[in-house]
Simulated scan of single mutants.
Amino acid sequence: MKTNITKSIDEYIQNFPEEVQSVLQKIRKTIQKEAPEATETISYAIPTFVQNGNLLHFAAFSKHIGFYALPSGNQAFQKEISRYKSGKGSIQFPLNEPIPYPLIKKIVKFRVAENLEKTKKKVSKKKSPIQKKKSKPNRK
């Protein structure tokens, strides 16, 4: 059995009908606009954006677009995503309804800020032992 593993988001999107490709491209552009420094990749066999760690993933299915903003993205927007089928880290946007691009934009902004804050905390934790050594006076 031959598996069809895509190597890029472009290749992934090309595997779908034109109307779905259009939705996927618009989601991609929305993410790119809100996270211009993010890197595109394929992870878990689906389009992924990485910036200071995994930012989010998205995927097309026969009747919906799966949007994966990790658990924190869903928790922060519970009210806005309540009308969609969702799980711990996933949201399903039905293809027979308008895709909520403004909501996607807000979630991407949130995830960029969240990942940046986590990175800052990691960096400050790594620096603190060095800073403590430097602040001790030399006693001879």
Rank of each mutant, 00 (worst) to 15 (best):
F77D: 05
L103Y: 04
R111M: 11
E40M: 03
Q78Y: 08
G87P: 05
Q78D: 08
A35D: 11
S90G: 12
S22H: 09
Q14G: 05
P137W: 09
Y44K: 09
K7N: 13
E18I: 07
K106H: 09
F93E: 00
E18V: 10
N74E: 05
P102Y: 04
N4G: 07
K79N: 13
G53A: 08
E80S: 09
S135Q: 13
K136G: 07
I9E: 00
V112E: 01
S128E: 15
I65W: 01
K85V: 07
K120D: 11
K118G: 14
P102C: 05
T41Y: 04
E40S: 03
Q78F: 04
H64F: 14
A59G: 15
I9Y: 00
N74K: 04
I81N: 00
I91H: 03
E11Q: 11
S22C: 07
T41D: 11
E97I: 12
A38H: 01
P71F: 07
Q32I: 13
N138D: 12
I99Q: 02
E37F: 07
P129V: 14
Y101C: 01
S86N: 15
V123R: 09
V23M: 04
L95M: 09
K126I: 04
S62V: 11
N96H: 11
F67Y: 14
N96R: 06
I107N: 00
N54W: 06
V20R: 00
P71H: 04
K29H: 09
K85L: 06
E80G: 05
R28D: 07
E117M: 05
A113P: 04
F93I: 01
S82H: 11
K127V: 11
P47M: 05
I91A: 04
I9W: 00
G73A: 06
T30L: 04
Y44L: 13
N15A: 12
A45V: 11
